[in-house]
Simulated scan of single mutants.
Amino acid sequence: MNLNQWFENLFENNWMPLEEIFNSINQKKFALRSISSFRKASVARAKIIDLALQLGNQTVVLLIAIAPFVEEKVEIQILVQLHPMSEKTYLPSNLRLILQVESGEIIQEVVSLSNDNFIQLKRFRGNSGEGFNIQVSDGDLTIKETFVI
């Protein structure tokens, strides 16, 4: 997935506008609050991740927001969050959100607690052409999304 294409409104079908995923107004406001402090030129999309087999029909939402760090969009800031799906208030415990560089090295990792209504990685930056992976894992099942800036 090439994130620079998001600035040109080119998205893969499974990456949807936040409005399509967060169906309640409060959820949408909550999800957008962190992004609104991001930057005016930010683009945000969300993808539903189904961990049903492992988490008792639990579905989570991976949210990615990007914004140019400099006007030329050579370097961008990236915000990654994991939210429960609309019918749930909290994420399941011990869900891991992991940032991994192309070499496989883990740069960041955050683990959900029983009362987390979302978790997020620290904002990070990358340059055009760099790649990274975002993983969502419950210990037994890991789902990996690969991105290129």
Rank of each mutant, 00 (worst) to 15 (best):
M1H: 11
M1W: 01
N2M: 04
L3I: 04
L3F: 00
N4G: 12
F7H: 15
L10I: 14
F11Y: 15
E12C: 07
E12T: 12
W15L: 13
P17W: 00
F22R: 10
N23K: 13
I25K: 15
N26G: 11
Q27T: 05
K28L: 15
K28D: 05
K29C: 06
A31H: 03
A31N: 02
I35G: 06
I35P: 03
S37G: 14
K40I: 05
A41K: 08
A41L: 06
A41R: 07
V43I: 15
V43M: 08
R45H: 06
A46D: 03
K47T: 10
K47G: 07
I49P: 05
L51S: 08
A52I: 04
L53W: 10
L53Y: 14
L55N: 14
N57V: 05
N57A: 14
N57Q: 12
Q58T: 14
V60Y: 10
V60H: 13
L63R: 08
A65N: 10
I66D: 00
I66E: 00
I66Y: 00
E71P: 03
E71N: 15
V74D: 13
E75C: 09
E75R: 03
I76L: 01
I76F: 00
Q77L: 11
Q81M: 11
Q81P: 05
E87T: 12
L91F: 06
P92W: 06
S93C: 04
S93D: 09
S93P: 11
S93A: 13
L95R: 03
L95Y: 06
L97S: 07
I98H: 02
L99W: 06
Q100V: 11
V101P: 01
S103M: 02
G104D: 04
G104M: 02
E105T: 09
Q108W: 01
L113K: 09
S114C: 07
S114E: 14
N115I: 09
N117K: 10
F118P: 05
F124H: 08
R125G: 02
N127F: 02
N127A: 08
G129F: 00
G129H: 00
F132C: 01
F132V: 00
N133Q: 03
G139E: 11
D140I: 06
T142R: 03
I143L: 12
K144I: 10
E145P: 05
F147C: 00
V148P: 03
I149Y: 00
